[in-house]
Simulated scan of single mutants.
Amino acid sequence: MGRGNSKYRKGTKFEWELKRILEREGFAVVRSAGSHGVDLIAGRKGEIYAFECKSTSKESFYISKENILKLLIFSETFGARPYIAIKIKRDILFIDPYLLKLEGKNYLIDYYKIFPIALSFKELVGKK
C-alpha cells in the first residue's frame, strides 16, 4: 500500500472516532465521504457544526487554502459553525478556521501555535 492510503486510513479512522464521541453526547452525525470540504456534519437541538477532520502524528502540518474555503462555503450555505477537528499529539482539538493565518497558499497548523485558540471536546460540547 502506498503512503497516501495509510494517511487516508488514519483520517478516516479519526472521522469515525469523532462521529462516535459526538453521538455519545447526543448529536446526530452524518459523515460526508469525498472531497466536499466537510467530513462530518453534526447537530444537536439547533447547534449545527461542520467539521473538516485531520489526524497527524506530527507537531505541525499544512491545510490548503482550497480545503478551508470549501469548509467555509459549505458551512455558510448549510448554516453550520465550521471547525477543523484535529487529532494531534493524541489530543482532539477544534479550531475556528477564521482564526487561522494564511501562509502562502496554505494554513499552517502547528500544535503549539493553535493550542491557545483551539477548543477541547468538552469546551465544544459545552461541558465544564
Rank of each mutant, 00 (worst) to 15 (best):
R3P: 06
G4Q: 15
K13H: 15
F14V: 12
E15V: 04
E15G: 03
W16M: 10
R20M: 09
L22E: 00
E25P: 08
G26N: 09
A28P: 06
V30M: 15
A33K: 13
G34F: 15
G34R: 15
S35C: 11
S35Y: 11
H36S: 14
V38P: 11
I41D: 08
R44F: 03
R44H: 09
K45N: 10
K45F: 14
G46T: 03
E47D: 03
F51L: 03
E52D: 10
C53L: 02
K54G: 06
K54P: 05
S57V: 13
S57C: 06
K58V: 10
K58C: 07
K58I: 06
E59I: 12
E59C: 14
K65A: 13
K65N: 13
N67C: 01
K70R: 02
K70H: 03
L72H: 09
I73D: 07
F74C: 11
F74R: 08
E76F: 15
E76N: 13
F78L: 08
G79Y: 04
A80W: 02
P82M: 12
Y83F: 02
I84T: 03
I84H: 01
I84E: 06
I86K: 01
K87D: 00
R90L: 07
R90V: 09
D96E: 12
L100C: 01
L100S: 05
L102Y: 02
E103L: 14
E103A: 11
G104H: 02
G104D: 02
G104T: 05
Y107L: 01
Y107N: 00
L108V: 14
L108N: 08
I109T: 01
I109Y: 08
K113V: 04
K113P: 00
L119G: 07
L124E: 05
L124F: 04
V125G: 03
